[in-house]
C-alpha cells in the first residue's frame, strides 16, 4: 500500500499524472486509492446521459474552485453530489444552468452539454437554458407574491400559457405534482411567503417544474427543513425522477443514500469518486470517500 502511494506521489511531482490517467484509467477494483491521488475513481459515464460535463474548471478570480471535473448526469435518475463544506459541489451544480454567470469574477472552462448542445456556447441563450434546467435553492425563496403568482411567473415570462384558464390548470398541475395542492388550493391568493418552510420549498419545486424543465438542480433543498418536511421532499424527488433528471447537492449522506441512484464525491474542487450510490456507500474505492462516508471528517 505504502509503495503504491509513493509511486503515484512521485508521478504527480514529475507532472506525468495525465499520462498515467490516460494509460491506466482507475476504474472499479477492489483497492482503496490513497489520499494524495486526486484522479476520479469510478465510471463517469452513464448509458443514457442527459448532461455531459468534460474537463470543467471553475475559477473565482485566482481561486481554482473546480479542477477538471468530468461526469455524466443520467436521465430519469437522481444524482447526488456530496462532500465536505467548500468542496465545490454547489459551485459545480450552479455551472449546470450557468447561475455562476451572475457571480462577478467567475470563469468556467471545459464543456458541458445538454442533449449534445454546449450550454456555454456563445449562441445559446441563457434564458432558454434556465427554462430547461430548473433550480431549487437551499433556502426556500418564494417571490413575495401570491402562491398563484409564484407558479404562474415562469409560464408568464416564457409565454407558455395561452390564456387564463390554461394558466390556472398549469398552476394546479404543478402544485399537485409538488404535493402542495391539497394544502393550498383554498388560498392561492395568499402570500407564498406565509407558508411554512417545508411548504415554501415545495412551492419552489412547483415553481421550478412550472416551465417544464428537463433537469432540476437542487442545492441542499432540505437543509433548512425539519425531518418531516424533509421526508416529504424526498418522497417528491422520488416521484419527480420518473420525468426529470435530478441533481441534488446534500450534506446529509443518509439523504444521498435514500434518494439518489448515483453519487459523486467532491473534495477541495476535485471529483474524487463517482458511482452507483450503493457501491459508494458500501464499497468506496478512495480513501477520502471512505473517510467521509464513515464520518471521519466532513
Amino acid at each position: 500500500m505504502n509503495t503504491t502511494a509513493t509511486t503515484i506521489n512521485s508521478a504527480t511531482h514529475q507532472g506525468t499524472l495525465i499520462v498515467a490517467q490516460a494509460e491506466a484509467p482507475l476504474k472499479t477494483g477492489p483497492r482503496v486509492i490513497d489520499y494524495n491521488d486526486r484522479r476520479t475513481v469510478g465510471d463517469i459515464t452513464v448509458p443514457d446521459p442527459k448532461m455531459v460535463c468534460r474537463d470543467v474548471n471553475v475559477y473565482y478570480g485566482e481561486n481554482h474552485a473546480i479542477k477538471t471535473v468530468s461526469i455524466d448526469i443520467g436521465n430519469r435518475q437522481v444524482t447526488s453530489l456530496i462532500g465536505p463544506s467548500g468542496c465545490g459541489k454547489s459551485t459545480f451544480l450552479r455551472c449546470l444552468n450557468r447561475m455562476n454567470d451572475t457571480i462577478p469574477g467567475c470563469r468556467v472552462t471545459g464543456e458541458i452539454t445538454i442533449d449534445k448542445e454546449n450550454i456555454y456556447d456563445k449562441n445559446l441563450d441563457v434564458v432558454q437554458l434556465r427554462a430547461r434546467v430548473g433550480m431549487v435553492f437551499q433556502k426556500p425563496n418564494p417571490f413575495p407574491k401570491s402562491i398563484f403568482e409564484n407558479i404562474a411567473y415562469g409560464p408568464h415570462i416564457h409565454g407558455l400559457a395561452a390564456n387564463k384558464r390554461e394558466l390556472g390548470e398549469l398552476v394546479e398541475t404543478c402544485l399537485i405534482k409538488a404535493g402542495l395542492w391539497e394544502e393550498v388550493k383554498d388560498r392561492l391568493e395568499e402570500a407564498g411567503t406565509g407558508l411554512s418552510g417545508g411548504q415554501q420549498q415545495r412551492l419552489c419545486i412547483a415553481r421550478a417544474i412550472s416551465v417544464n424543465p428537463e433537469v432540476i438542480l437542487m442545492d441542499e433543498p432540505c437543509s433548512a427543513l425539519d425531518p418531516i418536511a424533509t421526508a416529504r421532499i424526498e418522497e417528491l424527488m422520488d416521484e419527480l425522477r420518473e420525468n426529470y433528471a435530478i441533481v441534488i447537492v446534500t450534506h446529509s449522506m443518509q439523504q444521498a443514500a435514500r434518494v439518489s441512484q448515483r453519487t459523486a464525491y467532491f473534495h477541495l474542487g476535485d471529483l474524487i469518486e463517482v458511482g452507483d450510490t450503493e457501491q459508494i456507500f458500501t464499497n468506496p474505492q478512495h480513501r477520502l470517500t471512505e473517510d467521509y462516508i464513515t464520518g471521519r471528517f466532513g
Partner: peptide, 19 residues
C-alpha cells in the same frame, strides 16, 4: 435569494429587476 429565484426561472436581467 429573490434575484436567484427570478434568474433561476429563466427571467432576463431586466425582467428580474422590473418584476
Amino acid at each position: 435569494s429573490i434575484r436567484e429565484a427570478a434568474l433561476g426561472m429563466g427571467a432576463s436581467k431586466l425582467q428580474m429587476v422590473a418584476h
